[in-house]
């Protein structure tokens, strides 16, 4: 698309109880993204169209929506990549209730996250209360820190989207968060029982849809969910590992390269890693 042209945007209007798609025609030009077009529709013909956005740079995770049925960030979806000869469908995330139009209530995610035990470091390595970590060990968990909490992975996960297991399953975003904490070389908190029971990692059947939609290209399935599944197998299902643990005390301290768990009285206050 090198010249300006007219395009039709089929946008969801309504809330979780009632709603329908409505067509809006607007003029688009080279370089525009879907969020630009939605703003243009707002200014031209639908001033009451509700749409959440903030940075317009793919870093705040606010403008998540489903564009032509695919969960994507509106600000990172260029119109050149879409077939403008057909109406472009824009609808809210389907795994969460729509508040109005393109805005969904994603507060459930924050309630789930609040229940995950925070980072708890081991006893400081140095007398001045500081720690020493090798860069190689940091890199593994830094990938998970790229998450912008756009919740596209939650939206596309069929366990939430189609089976509505919100009461039993935390979803890919929270497994990424738990992997970031559990694989941190300083962390000593035990979270695997929560991963298995409360957060229901067994519901994941590895469809990899979460990995495909992640705008930060985090290898959610390969680097977070499957390693957590394997750790859960270590901890709860594998009889040989459990037998081996009797002789070697292979728990969190073992995964930490044998360093001691912290003395509770010597612990620094809880906080984010």
């Amino acid at each position: 698309m090198t010249e300006a042209r007219d395009a039709t945007f089929r946008i969801w209007r309504g809330d979780h109880a009632t709603g329908a798609f409505r067509d809006y025609r607007t003029r688009v030009t080279h370089g525009m993204v879907v969020l630009d077009a939605v703003h243009q529709v707002q200014s031209e013909s639908a001033p009451d169209l509700a749409c959440r956005w903030n940075c317009k740079a793919g870093k705040c995770g606010s403008c998540s929506a489903e564009i032509n049925g695919r969960p994507r960030l509106m600000c990172m979806t260029r119109l050149e990549t879409l077939d403008l000869d057909q109406p472009v469908t824009v609808e809210p995330l389907r795994a969460f209730p729509s508040i109005r139009d393109l805005v969904t209530d994603v507060s459930w995610n924050f309630r789930v996250k609040a229940k995950i035990p925070p980072f708890r470091p081991r006893t400081p390595d140095a007398p001045d209360g500081t720690w020493r970590i090798d860069q190689a060990d940091v890199e593994r968990v830094q990938e998970f820190r790229k998450c912008i909490e756009c919740f596209l992975c939650q939206d596309v996960c069929h366990v939430l989207r189609d089976h509505h297991k919100h009461d039993e399953f935390a979803g890919p975003r929270h497994f990424v968060y738990q992997a970031a904490l559990d694989m941190h070389p300083l962390d000593v908190e035990e979270r695997l029982r929560q991963v298995k029971d409360e957060n229901g990692i067994g519901y994941c059947n590895i469809t990899r849809c979460c990995t495909k939609v992640c705008p930060e290209h985090i290898a959610i399935t390969d680097n977070a969910i499957i390693p957590l599944k394997e750790r859960v197998v270590d901890e709860f299902y594998d009889p040989l590992t459990r037998l081996f643990r009797i002789f070697r005390a292979k728990r969190k301290s073992d995964r930490m390269d044998g360093r001691p768990e912290p003395d509770a009285s010597a612990l620094p206050p809880k906080g984010a890693p």
Partner: peptide, 17 residues
Amino acid sequence: MSQADLRLPQRGMGATS
């Protein structure tokens, strides 16, 4: 896990945009 009253619609086989 947080109790959720999401009242989400069930979509049928093959339903997609």
